Amino acid sequence: MAGARVIPLIYTEPPEVLNQKLNLVNGIIFTGGWAKDGLYFDVIKGIFQKVLEKNDAGEHFPLLAICLGYELLTMIITNDNNILEEFSAVSQASTVQFVENVNIDGTVFGRFPPVLLKKMSIDCLVMQNHHFGISPERFQANKDLSSFFRVLTTSTDENNKVYVSTIQATRYPIAAFQWHPEKNVFEWGSSRIPHSEDAIQVTTHVANYFISEARKSSNKPVAREVLDSLIYNYNPTYGGKAGKGYDEVYLFTPHSSSSSM
């Protein structure tokens, strides 16, 4: 929606195929989901390492992590699979509260209109859908997390427990959300998902931020290889009637790969 095309990284693909695809893209999105172990975790960990390596080598290579993606980053960076805490934020529209005196220049919120930022702290413009998260206290007490990221916002679950909801890396073009910026525009399975004009603007500004970061990448892959890998080569399936909350899904054929990256 912000002027980019998608190449799906299918975690069951052989490592050499995933590495080839990583050389065709200008940034990565870790999506939401539920898998926190096994092959999926190993592949995400390997891709994250590649993101760091590309940036350390001088290539601007952004990463956006959403919900599960956010949670996996905290586990990988701390090397602690038990870093997360339980929260009650399933199918919950919420506000985000900006950390006091936080400087948002250059962050995912940097180009949001001030009036929209204010509304985000008052109106429920973001969609939460998670059982886990991390409290500000635990986040700041962990040196691995607090040195890698800075906290931009917090949110409150249904039991008034506060958790970190948006973070930004200090040295890398990496931003992570505990919430789902994509749902406001694309998902209709829950009546709680906000679809107001302001909510749509939140999604739009997040998308524009990420793609603006991707445009800074110097990677210029071979056009034919890109065309062969685009998601347009796959057929989406309408899932809205199933009532699972996903209006459109891609069903990828599993590959016989048992090794991580």
Rank of each mutant, 00 (worst) to 15 (best):
N79A: 11
G3H: 06
H255D: 12
D56A: 11
H130Y: 06
S259P: 00
F109C: 07
V164Q: 06
N82S: 12
K220P: 00
E59R: 09
F210V: 07
Q92H: 07
V99W: 03
V51M: 03
K119I: 09
I29H: 02
Y246H: 13
E53R: 05
K21D: 11
G3V: 06
G243T: 10
R192M: 08
I29M: 07
Y70M: 12
V222P: 00
V151M: 13
S218N: 09
E182C: 06
N129Y: 05
A175R: 02
P8E: 08
W179H: 11
T154D: 01
G46S: 13
R5Q: 14
P8I: 05
E85L: 09
S94H: 07
V17K: 15
C67G: 10
P15A: 04
I10P: 00
K54M: 02
R192Y: 05
F109P: 04
P114E: 13
P136W: 07
A93M: 11
R215V: 01
I167R: 07
T166C: 09
V115F: 02
F148L: 08
S147G: 02
P136I: 11
E213T: 02
G46N: 10
F132G: 00
D228P: 01
E16R: 08
S212T: 10
P113L: 10
K118H: 10
G33T: 09
I28Y: 13
I174T: 09
T156A: 00
T31S: 15
L68A: 04
I200Q: 14
E213R: 09
P236Y: 12
Y234G: 01
G58V: 05
F61E: 09
P113S: 07
K143F: 05
N160A: 11
L22Q: 14
T154K: 01
A65E: 14
W188A: 05
P14T: 08
D80L: 06
V25G: 00
Q201P: 00
S155V: 03
Y234R: 07
Q128P: 02
P194C: 06
M127H: 14
T107W: 04
E59S: 05
T153E: 11
V43Y: 08
Y163L: 15
P62N: 06
P114R: 09
W34Q: 15
G58I: 02
F98C: 08
I7Y: 05
Y238W: 13
N219E: 10
K119Y: 03
D198N: 12
P114M: 03
T237S: 10
P236M: 15
F48L: 13
V151I: 15
V51C: 11
I134F: 03
N19H: 04
N160E: 13
M1A: 15
G33Q: 11
G133M: 06
A199R: 14
F177S: 15
S218I: 01
I211R: 10
V17T: 15
E59F: 01
Q128W: 02
L117I: 01
A223C: 02
L63C: 07
A2P: 05
H180G: 01
V162N: 00
D105C: 01
G110S: 08
F139S: 06
S196R: 09
S147I: 06
N19T: 03
V102R: 12
M75F: 05
M120I: 12
I193K: 11
L251K: 12
L84Y: 08
K118W: 00
G245Q: 12
A35L: 08
S155D: 06
K45Y: 09
A242P: 00
Q128F: 04
E59A: 03
F98N: 09
I122L: 10
V249D: 10
F210S: 10
Q97V: 11
E100S: 10
